[in-house]
């Protein structure tokens, strides 16, 4: 859980950095983003990482299911009057629910961009690269689509807010000072990731021609 989660966290950084090219002025964004996508899709290393990502997400979900089942079995008969939620944060108790929203979001996300880029028949740009930029912009010009994205990314944010520091604990970071450092780093990381991924669709929506 912690290993796959941490790997996914790492991936998000790279993914965001690449996507930030979408914030360039339209012409430069198109050229740069399409060139970058082309570069990635032709790279063996990226192919490998893509597979690793799929395996990680799958393993993460399988572990999540196993953990949830074990926890359910361990809980036995619940309480008639239950106020236990006062002693922990909402997101830490609802990682499975948040994960499910992320999963739904991922299906939509992969179907609309990854699948179409790989298997769809897309137009080429002036450089002769597949024009992924055009579909991204077209998607984000829809109001409801932007809303869906914001919701998915918000779920991811709450998942990370607990997941980042939780993973460090599961792996065994017990030093009081470094634990605090990681907790703060987790918050900053979550803020950067959610803000970064949210700005892109919003920026494109408000800059549509």
């Amino acid at each position: 859980m912690a290993l796959t989660g941490t790997f996914l966290c790492l991936f998000l950084v790279i993914h965001l950095l690449g996507n930030l090219q979408l914030l360039l002025p339209a012409d430069r964004a198109r050229a740069s983003f399409n060139w970058y996508s082309h570069l990635l899709s032709g790279n063996v290393l990226i192919k490998l990482i893509e597979w690793l990502l799929f395996v990680s997400i799958l393993a993460h979900i399988v572990y999540a299911l196993l953990l949830t089942l074990r926890a359910r079995k361990a809980s036995g008969r619940g309480y008639v009057y239950d106020k236990r939620k006062a002693s922990s944060t909402w997101n830490s108790r609802n990682m499975g629910f948040l994960g499910m929203i992320i999963l739904l979001f991922l299906v939509l996300h992969l179907k609309d961009f990854w699948y179409r880029y790989k298997f769809g028949n897309l137009p080429l740009d002036e450089q002769g690269y597949t024009d992924l930029y055009a579909i991204v912009v077209a998607a984000y010009e829809e109001f409801w689509y932007v809303l869906l994205y914001l919701a998915g990314i918000a779920a991811l944010g709450f998942h990370l807010l607990h997941g980042f520091s939780s993973a460090a604990r599961t792996l065994g970071l017990y030093h009081p000072l470094y634990s605090k450092v990681v907790r703060v780093a987790g918050k900053l990381y979550t803020l950067a990731i959610t803000a970064g991924f949210m700005i892109i669709p919003v920026y494109i929506y408000f800059n549509k021609a």
């Binding site: 953990l67 079995k73 361990a74 809980s75 002693s87 922990s88 939780s166």
Partner: peptide, 15 residues
């Protein structure tokens, strides 16, 4: 003994 897995909610320390 069928205790469940820890997911670091930290409720234990609070109580």
């Amino acid at each position: 003994e069928q205790f469940g897995p820890c997911s670091n909610t930290e409720a234990c320390e609070v109580e």
